[in-house]
């Protein structure tokens, strides 16, 4: 070791980590949103026992339900993608496979979130 300064001394003055905590922070942000949204989701499902197609359709078409459902599915896939990234980083030790899997997971998460949003919009705007 040629540098005898301690790590804190070296880091000082280099500026903030900027997006360094981005993953951690977004995982917590989506987690907080999902605490509220998943409770809403479960209660909504429980209120829809024995609902037929028309009832379920009309329920989701209500503006608040449609908005909250899109918020739920978007934060769910965002949170899922962040979590799967950590799992892949921990267990996949072949670099090309690790990167390929992460790219695949992230692209699929965006695709699925978009598909959910479009499905909700089709129901909400069908009337």
């Amino acid at each position: 070791m040629s540098d005898l300064r301690n790590p804190l001394q070296r880091a000082r003055g280099l500026g903030s980590a900027k997006s360094g905590v981005g993953h951690w922070w977004m995982q917590r942000m989506t987690a907080v949103a999902l605490v509220v949204l998943s409770i809403w989701f479960v209660l909504t499902l429980l209120s829809m026992l024995h609902a037929d197609f028309a009832t379920a359709h009309a329920m989701l078409a209500k503006p608040w339900n449609a908005v909250l459902m899109i918020a739920f599915t978007t934060s769910m896939f965002w949170h899922a993608q962040l979590g799967l990234q950590v799992v892949i980083e921990d267990y996949v030790h072949t670099r090309w496979l690790e990167v390929s899997l992460m790219v695949l997971v992230k692209l699929l998460a965006v695709l699925f979130a978009l598909a959910c949003a479009l499905a909700v919009l089709r129901v909400a705007l069908a009337g």
């Binding site: 197609f53 379920a56 359709h57 989701l60 459902m69 599915t73 699925f112 598909a115 959910c116 479009l118 499905a119 909700v120 089709r122 129901v123």
Partner: peptide, 8 residues
């Protein structure tokens, strides 16, 4: 995802 796309 399946449920929502099915409903749509």
């Amino acid at each position: 995802l399946w449920g929502l796309t099915a409903l749509a």
